[in-house]
Every structure is written in C-alpha cells, then in structure tokens.
Design a protein around this nucleic acid. Structure first.
Lengths: 330, 330
DNA sequence: AGACAAAAAGACAACGTTGTTTAAATGATT
DNA sequence: AATCATTTAAACAACGTTGTCTTTTTGTCT
C-alpha cells in the first residue's frame, strides 16, 4: 500500500504537506496542492484509517449492536436511520449482530471498545426489556427499541400507549363503534401499553367500554405453526360482532382477512381492520390494503445516533410516535 | 484510555511482556503472566485495535457492502452466514448499507479500503446483475446473490434452474400432473432460470408440456398496490384447471390462497401450492402452511466469506442449491 | 562450581499518520 | 535595500502497538 511519504516523494514536497492536503488544510499553496493531488491520484494513495485513528486518538466510529435484529424485516430501519445521521456527520457505523444470549453481547461490546468507538447503540428486535453487560457503562450507550432495569442508559422506544390511542381514535372518529382488539401476549410491554391507549381512546370519546373487546392471541412463528388467532377472529366475529378489529401485528391481520373472507365478511365494507407494525410487504399484499400503525424504527435509529453525536450527558427515556398509515381496510 | 505501558508499570514488567501476554505468547513465565493479567483486569486495559492494525499492517476486517439489502427480510441471512464464518476465524465484519445508485457503492468501497479490509463481499438484495465501481478490483471482492458483466469477480448465486426443477419434480412425483407457474417478471434472471428448470422437470418425467402453463404476473410492492396475480390465479384456476400452482414468490402465494379460498378451492386438498423464497413469516401464516423453496442466503454468505478467507485466487462462478421446505400446501 | 544451552524478558525501532515547533519563503512597509 | 510580519513548508516527536535483536535469567550437564 502506498503511504503518505511515497506521495510526498513523488510530488516533491514534505510528507507533512501531503497530510495537509489530505485533511483540507487551507495553508497549502495551490501549486503544491495540485502537485499533491495529482500524485495521490497517480499513485492511488488511500489514507490509512488505522494510523490516523492511532495518532488522533479519535476513531469516528459508532458501534451498533443489533440484538438478533435480523429476524424481523422492518426493524432494519433502525440501522438505516442511524447510518443516515452518522453518514451526514462523517462518522462510521460498525454493526455487530448478536444473538440473544448475554455473553455474545458482551463480546460484541468488547470488540467495539477495542476499536475505540465513540458510542454504542444497542438496538433490539422488538420492544422489550434487556439485560446488558456492564462493560457497556464504560462507553456512551443508547438503547433503541428496548429498555433496561438499570436506568443509567438513555433509551428511545416507540410510544405504544399513544399508538393504541391514535388507531382507536381513528376508528372511532371514522364511525366505528364496536371494536375488538386481538392483542399480542400481554407480557409484552407493547401489548400492555397499546391496550391502555385503546381504552384511553374509548374514554376520551365517551364510548362505553362494553363496546370494546380485548383478547390476547398467540400467533404462529416460522418455527411453530400453531396460532389461535384464526379461531379467535371467527369466534369474536360471530359472538361479539364488532364493526372493526384492531390486530396486534400485521401477520395477525392476514389471518383475520382469511377468516373473515371465509365467513363472507368483506374487509373495509362490512368490517374495518387496523393493525400495528407496517410489516414489510404484508399491508400491500392484502385487499383492501391494510391500514396500520407504522413503527418509528427509522426515527429511533436517527434519534439514538443524534443523541450520541451531540455528546449529551442527560439520561432521558424518550418515546417516539408511530405513524398511522391509512390504506383501504377501514 | 489505559495503555500497554501503564499496565507494564503497574505490573512491574516491560511493556513488551504485556504485549506478549495479550497476544498469548507462550514464552511468558506463569508468575509474570499472572501479574500482567491482574494488572490488565485492575486497570481495565483494552488493546487498541487501531494501533495494532497500524503496526501489524493487517486489519482482520472484511468489508460487506449490502446493496439495499434491507428491504427484503430474509436476505439478511447473507450477513448472518458471512458473520458466522468470520467470527470463527477471528475476523471482523464491517457492514455498509448502500442504496442502489453507483456513487454510494463507490463511497462505501473507499471507506472500506481506507480501513484496509482484507476483502469485500458485495451482496445484492435479489439475484440480479450489478454494475460495480472499478475501485473494487483493487481488493479481493466476491459477489453474493448477484453477478457482473465484468467476469473478473468471483460470484455465488442461487441455483435457480435446479430450484425450478426440484420443486416441479416434487410436485410431479407427488402425483400432480397439471401445473401452472405464476412466474415473476421474466426479465429477472431468477424467473428465466426457474422456468427452464420447471420445463426440464416435465421433460425428465416425460409429462407433456401441454400440462404446464407458465405466465408472468406482476405483483404488488409496498409502494404501489397494483398486482394482477389475483386475477391471473382466478382465471387460470377456472380455465387451465391445474391441480397444482407454483408461485414465483411467497407473497404471490398469499394472494393465490385468498383467491382459491374465495372460489371454494381448498389448498392442499383440491390444489397443491408451492412457491419460492421461504419469506420470513409468510409460509407459516398460511393454512395449510406453504411449501416453498428456501433461498440459500445463509450458505451464500458463508461461501463468500470462506472464499475470501481462503485467499483463493481462482475466479469461479458458483451456484448453491435451494432447500425444499415441505409444509402442508401440497 | 563452572560451562553452556535454552528460556524469558528487555531495549529499541518501526508502522503511517497528525500535532507542534521551527525554519524558510514571501510580501509589505519603511 | 533593509526590516519585519505573515504565509507556507519542513523537521521532528508522538500515538499505542508489534517485530527484531540483545541481554538476562534459569536450568542442565559435567
């Protein structure tokens, strides 16, 4: 690899002058700058980041630990958001993917710190509590899409309560009056909070809570094909007879569509449907397309990176709003 | 940050001895090793990778350029596969996400080369041709899930022909005799090759090609909600009357399920369905669960990384087989 | 105990940069 | 033309490691 000194020799200047050109130091005369620029091009010189970091004692790298992020598609926007901000400020992102066990997160953090990252974003696949290796306290760390018992970490999570409220208000204000909510497992914080938000909406609009039916369903994953969301949808449609259903997750909505179709109930006309997530291609796959509350992943990624780059010291626990994506299903 | 010399002072040895301990040099007496290990722990010393890389002139980092990878969920297995192999060999992965325009890929490559990566994996979201910045030729580069007119790059792609053959043979051998193939846009290499594979299967089994109906459908994306796959499915079911349908992509299968259900045709009993991709949660979402040809993303990631780490010089263009995931839909 | 080989640890330079100090070139002012 | 201030470039040290060479320590054999 060609070094700064070789460029200097080639250009007939001192190697320090080359360094100045590379770093856009204005105190280089045009004639010398041109010589250097030419030599750089001719020799194909590329600065050595490792050497630069060594000397500067600043890496310009932000670490991103992705806690098994990869399984759920849209979560990836977390990385996209963080990368955008980093890029704009000439910082680099070092993404490490770890599985859920704690050991691996610690190893990842170690790696990152050996690279002298200037901060770490720890992002989770879904909004939940995490247990973090203590090593992370040694470096500015932000939690994204998760929270920790140890409240010393600033965190950014989706505003689940408000999301529940928003979607329920939207339905109520669209004239729906009897709503069923096929919630996720209520051990999940998202499920608890969204439920609360939906209840809030009913209270806000003065609609009696008898008009709201909430039920947790369990739902098929790629591994186990069991799910009771179809059964629940059918039973609720038959017995509770809602005029709208809110699904805790877009995949649940897919199953609801199947069940309702089989019962001769047409989504959008006979039954409003709304959901949470804006999961990849799913909403557009359905007819009518699914109205859903889009998770603010991109914004959370941005927020986390901005927090780090501003070198904030305050420990805050922020929430970001979902976006209601209105399509044809209600 | 604490340095190797501070550890040395603390432990009462020369800094070179600390370096030896850190690098597991066996020529350090146990008593000194213990002293050093203790001091490292006590002071919280962490080796400085940048300095190490500077001196060693070896980064141990492999670059991964993800060509807009993030939009399709399961593609992420490419990174997972690559990371697994890298991890096992004590290498690190530096992942950069780029959008499709060429400029950005060049910038990404530049960044990586400033970090003196030992190789680059350029991976695409879906199997297609890419145009690469020339700078990539300066560094060992492997293409994954894509290919390039410039055949100087080794590449690893899915074996589309064989996948078509496999799924068609599976259906034929399961007794299906009249098959429709809802193909993707035939400008896509995957569509062309899979079609060929399916035809091969019919020839292999001596089933007349009149029993095979192939048609390209266009298909809804999250942006535009148009799709003709529903119309095509209905028409074909009515007119061609196949006993099985192969879908070019799992999302198409979802739409086929809807249409067939509305026609009173039960998947798995009245009509076999198979598909390509094994797209995230989709297959398990359907009832019966969708049998599909899983793309070898993980294996491609592994292959690409292994190719780089073996420092192979031969330029090969390999194909990896899909995996038939048999569920209940045929 | 003395000689010698082997093991262990130290001294010092080097990696490719950037920060700091010093020197040279340039230009303005008298 | 001499003086001085300012701009520009060079010299040199430093960053935190590892490679190489040298010295010291240890252990074995006579």
């Amino acid at each position: 690899m060609v070094t700064i000194k070789q460029v200097a020799t080639h250009a007939g200047v001192s190697f320090k002058t080359v360094s100045r050109v590379v770093n856009n130091d204005p105190t280089v005369k045009k004639i010398n700058r041109d010589k250097v620029v030419n030599s750089i091009k001719e020799l194909g010189y590329r600065p050595n980041r490792a050497a630069s970091i060594t000397r500067r004692k600043k890496s310009g790298i932000i670490g991103f630990i992705a806690d098994d992020l990869l399984k759920v598609p849209y979560t990836f926007d977390l990385i996209r958001g963080a990368q955008k901000v980093a890029w704009e400020q000439n910082k680099e992102l070092m993404v490490l993917n770890v599985t859920e066990d704690r050991y691996s997160a610690e190893l990842a953090a170690q790696h990152l710190m050996e690279h002298r990252v200037e901060g770490i974003i720890y992002a989770a696949m879904y909004h939940h509590e995490v247990i973090l290796p203590e090593i992370l306290l040694e470096c500015p760390t932000v939690l994204a899409n998760c929270y920790c018992q140890n409240t010393q970490y600033p965190s950014i999570v989706p505003d689940e309560v408000k999301a529940g409220e928003t979607v329920a208000l939207a339905l109520l204000d669209a004239g729906y009056r009897k709503i069923a909510f096929l919630n996720l497992n209520e051990q999940i914080i998202a499920a608890q909070d969204r439920k609360q938000g939906i209840i809030n909406a009913f209270i806000l609009r003065g609609v009696p809570l008898e008009n709201l039916h909430i039920e947790s369903v369990f739902h098929g994953s790629p591994d186990k094909e069991v799910s009771n969301s179809r059964e629940a949808t059918a039973r609720i449609a038959r017995e509770f007879k809602p005029d709208a259903i809110i699904c805790g997750q877009d995949p649940i909505a897919v199953e609801a569509y199947f069940v309702l179709q089989s019962m001769g109930i047409q989504v959008g006309r006979d039954m409003g449907i709304a959901s949470f997530d804006d999961w990849d291609t799913i909403p557009a796959l359905l007819q009518p397309a699914l109205s859903t509350m889009a998770l603010p992943h991109f914004d959370m990624g941005k927020w986390a990176m901005e927090y780090l780059l501003e070198e904030r010291q305050d420990i805050v626990h922020e929430k970001l709003p979902f976006t209601l994506v209105k399509r044809g299903s209600y």
